[in-house]
Amino acid sequence: MQQNPSSAPIVSLRDVQKSFGPLLVLDGVSFAVERGEVLALIGRSGSGKSTALRCIDRFEKVDGGEIVVCGHRVDRPDVDLRALRQDVGIVFQSYNLFPHLTIEQNITLAPCAVKGLAASQAKDLARKVLAQVGLEEKLHAYPEQLSGGQQQRAAIARSLAMQPKVMLFDEVTSALDPELTAEVLKVIEQLAADGMTMVMVTHEMGFAKGIADRIVFMHRGKVHETGPASILTSPTTPELTQFVGTGNLKS
């Protein structure tokens, strides 16, 4: 079977191994994300979800296996980090907006500094991405003037401004109360509807079920069960059954 670049997966992990000292955290993890697909990584605390996600953007170096992201061989030591990170957007649980910059400056910084965009173009772009997350009126506010949900949406907008080919989300709503969670999830839902390729670690099972094209259930550093969102309602392994049964499928 021939693979032309446009049909190759955006993200693919093959037999990825990763240890922190003596602790084996990823034990042969494989999965792929096709263009426009939404993949949800779920699993118990400590099962290796964040580590797997961080390996995709090379915040962690793998010990073995192969990771290809938008054509970049991420597992290789000579990977072009700047090129990789222009193709990948990542959003963290703790927003990590730059506190000394306005929302507009937070958003325009990377497009100007990395892509050499002119200031006026970058400002137009900032308006556009802020509109996407429903925060146009916060253009000139500082991060500390925003609620947690607004900060997280601004962080998503900041990533979008780099026009990534894939977005990674690591429990982006875990620090938020339910009301603010809902506004952030709505933004992510809209992104999915617009065709953005996404990998997200989430504890929001209801949300994962509604939005994910595929679920990867991790258990002890392995992909224990994977399949369409329907595996959440009819799991085949006892571990996933127990995981979705222990109140995780509340919403």
């Binding site: 980090l81 700047r82 703790s94 730059f98 910084l109 500094a113 962080a155």
Partner: peptide
């Protein structure tokens, strides 16, 4: 905070740019 630097790295800023734009003033 480490997260500030990771966020900047995730936006493809170089080490020098991170010092200059993200670390120095704060």
């Amino acid at each position: 905070p480490r997260g500030q630097i990771e966020a900047a790295e995730g936006l493809a800023l170089s080490r020098l740019q991170i010092y200059w734009h993200i670390i120095l003033l704060p």
